[in-house]
C-alpha cells in the first residue's frame, strides 16, 4: 500500500464539487445525463473545462461519467464529447458501453478509462479483459462479498473501485415505468415531475418497511436499494485487500449528509494511512453519520458478508 486510497464522490454542480472536495473527497465524478447514468446533477459540456480546473486546483481528480448504454442516434455525440473532456483535462472517463471504447481510441487516445458496468462487473477475468481494451480501473458490482473483492484485487493489475456508502441502483429500465403507471391509474404525470428529488418510493406488501426509491429521467426508470450501504467499519480489511478507490453515492441525499459522510471516511482513511498498525475505529465517525441518517433507511454492509445462492 504505497499510495493513499482514493475517496470518490459524484457531484451535481461545480460549487457542490468544491464543497465535497473540501469535506475530504480526493476525486469527483461529474458529467451530464446525456452521457452518464444517475448523476446527482448536470455539469454540462460548456462548464467542463472550468469544473475540472477547479477540482485540480483543490488537489482532487476529476472523472467524467460516460457510462450510459447508448443508442445509435446518440453515438455521433461521443467523439466530440470525449475529445472535449480529454482536452479539459479529465483524469478519466468512466464507461460501460464498448461504443465508448471505440470512440475514445480515435477521438481521445490519451484519455484514461474506468470500466463500470454496474451489476455486471463481477470477476477478475472480465476486469482483465477490459484492461486489455484500455481500462485502468475496474468498478466492481455492489453485489460482491469481501472475499470476492479481495480475490479480484489479487488477480488483477487494474485499480479497483468499490462503493463504500449510500444507496445502490438495483434495477434499471429504459421503460418509463412511473409515467406508464400514473397513466394507467388515470393521473396526469409529466417527466419533469418524476425526477430524483420527489421522494417517490416503492414498498412491497411483504416488506413494507423496505422503501425503494424510484425515479425516472431521460435515460429511463431507476429503482434504488432500501438500505444505505456503509462500509466504514470494514475499511481496514478493504484497504488491506488493496482496494484503490472508495465511492460515496450521494444520490437522493442532502448535501449536508454527504459532507458528513465524506468527513468520516476521510478521518478513517487518514488514520489508516498514517499508521495502519495503530489504526483504531472511532465510533464518532459512524455516530456523525447516524445523526443525519434517514430513520427509514438502515445502514448496512450490503453484500459484504453475504452468501448468495442461485
Amino acid at each position: 500500500m504505497n499510495k493513499a486510497a482514493e475517496l470518490l464522490i459524484a457531484a451535481g454542480s461545480i460549487g457542490q464539487m468544491e464543497r465535497y472536495i473540501e469535506a475530504g473527497a480526493s476525486a469527483v465524478l461529474i458529467g451530464e445525463s446525456r452521457f452518464g447514468a444517475r448523476l446527482p446533477g448536470d455539469i454540462e459540456a460548456g462548464e467542463m473545462r472550468e469544473a475540472i480546473a477547479r477540482a485540480h486546483a483543490k488537489g482532487a481528480k476529476a472523472y467524467v461519467s460516460v457510462n450510459k448504454l447508448f443508442r445509435n442516434a446518440e453515438l455521433p455525440d461521443l467523439p466530440g464529447y470525449l475529445k472535449l473532456i480529454a482536452d479539459a483535462g479529465a483524469d478519466a472517463a468512466v464507461f460501460g458501453d464498448p461504443a465508448v471504447l471505440l470512440n475514445a481510441r480515435e477521438a481521445a487516445p490519451g484519455l484514461k478509462l474506468h470500466w463500470n458496468a454496474e451489476m455486471t462487473g463481477t470477476n477478475s477475468a472480465a476486469a482483465a479483459f477490459w484492461g486489455r481494451k484500455g481500462a485502468v480501473r475496474a468498478v466492481l458490482a455492489r453485489e460482491l462479498n469481501e472475499a470476492e473483492i479481495a480475490d479480484i484485487k489479487r488477480q488483477t493489475t487494474l485499480e479497483v473501485q468499490v462503493q463504500a456508502h449510500g444507496m445502490t441502483n438495483i434495477y434499471y429500465s429504459q421503460r418509463n415505468l412511473l409515467q406508464s403507471y400514473m397513466e394507467h391509474i388515470g393521473r396526469e404525470a409529466h417527466i419533469v415531475d418524476l425526477g430524483a428529488d420527489r421522494g417517490r418510493y416503492l414498498a412491497e406488501a411483504e416488506r413494507p418497511e423496505e422503501k425503494l426509491p424510484i425515479f425516472e429521467d431521460r435515460n429511463g426508470t431507476h429503482v434504488m436499494s432500501a438500505d444505505d450501504i456503509c462500509l466504514l467499519e470494514a475499511l481496514p480489511d478493504l484497504l488491506a485487500a488493496g482496494v484503490d478507490s472508495f465511492y460515496i453515492e450521494p444520490l437522493l441525499k442532502p448535501e449536508a449528509y454527504n459532507i458528513t459522510v465524506l468527513s468520516s471516511y476521510r478521518s478513517a482513511l487518514d488514520a489508516w494511512a498514517a499508521n495502519p498498525e495503530a489504526y483504531r475505529f472511532e465510533e464518532r465517525w459512524l455516530d456523525d453519520i447516524r445523526a443525519l441518517q434517514d430513520p427509514d433507511r438502515e445502514l448496512s454492509f450490503g453484500f459484504l458478508y453475504k452468501e448468495q445462492v442461485y
Binding site: 448504454l69 454496474e118 451489476m119 455486471t120 463481477t122 455492489r142 453485489e143 441502483n169 438495483i170 434495477y171 434499471y172 429500465s173 429504459q174 421503460r175 415505468l177 412491497e204 416488506r207 429511463g220 429503482v223 436499494s225 432500501a226 453484500f303 453475504k306 452468501e307 448468495q308 445462492v309 442461485y310
Partner: peptide
C-alpha cells in the same frame, strides 16, 4: 425482463438469490 437485461438485482436484494447467475 422489463429492466435492461443484466441490470437488475432485485432478487439479490429481496432473497439473496443472484439474478445474474440464474437465481
Amino acid at each position: 425482463c422489463s429492466s435492461v437485461s443484466g441490470r437488475c438485482v432485485l432478487s439479490n436484494h429481496f432473497t439473496d438469490r443472484d439474478s445474474n447467475r440464474g437465481g
